[in-house]
Amino acid sequence: MSNKLKILVPVKRVIDYAIKPRINKTNTGVETKGVKFSINPFCDIALEESLRLREKTPESVESIHAVSIGPSKAQDILRTALAKGADTSTLIDVGEEPVEPLQVAKLLKKVVEDKKSNLIVLGKQAIDDDSNQTGQMLAGLLNWPQATNASKVEVKGDEVYVTREIDGGADVLKAKLPMVVSVDLRLNEPRYASLPNIMKAKKKPLEKLKLKDLGLDSIENRLKVLKVEEPPARQAGVKVENVDQLIEKLKELKAL
């Protein structure tokens, strides 16, 4: 088997990170109507890293395939991924309902097998459900090694060296391909897609699949969301004029 990288980059469409989400009236979720959606920032970093791996050693990378699981609108972020440099893409259209990480990992496993990917680069977490699970689950389902929270990725032959951000510092893991790498914020600065590339991306392959194309009837989510609420609001604080008043107030609140 050749050691050329066939990289798979899973990307998620989420509410834009700069928007403060509002809880819906029925307290069952977050209002999504008329809200700006974007590619999850960590997914963008994962895509960027894949593109850089190819730019560094073009001969080592055979293909970069982007995949998204979500509503049909998620094809917008796949077009963005193609405009930035992914070769091909797949949308698994599952409708509007959220899909839990375990189910996403199971669907991704099918894509990995279909595309014969040997390196999966994905974001460490999605900023909507904040789970931080999909990459590890996919690695578990495939029984591949994993490296989470990558802040540096180096491919040397058939070995991948990953520097990880861990509590209290950093460590380095290495593994033989195939493997799963989840990326952290500081790995890189994602590029913007240029207008000519956005135009070209419209001609790149975007395969659309439904669940039944993968031999499934429905998504079996395991968690029931009983309600979604605003966190308790903090009581309005006071503004003080100077350091003496600040210290006095701190003593009053028994914080000193």
Binding site: E100, P101, L102, Q103, A105, D130, S131, N132, Q133, T134, G135, Q136, M137, L138, A139, G140, L141, Q146, T148, N149, R164, E165, I166, D167, N221, R222, L223
Partner: peptide
């Protein structure tokens, strides 16, 4: 929910076919 916990728990979930709850 440390970096160790976040790395191990989901992999375990996949092995047991269980959807974990984070944090």
């Amino acid at each position: 929910g440390s970096s160790v916990g976040k790395s191990i728990l989901p992999r375990l979930g996949a092995l047991l076919d269980v959807q974990p709850l984070s944090d």
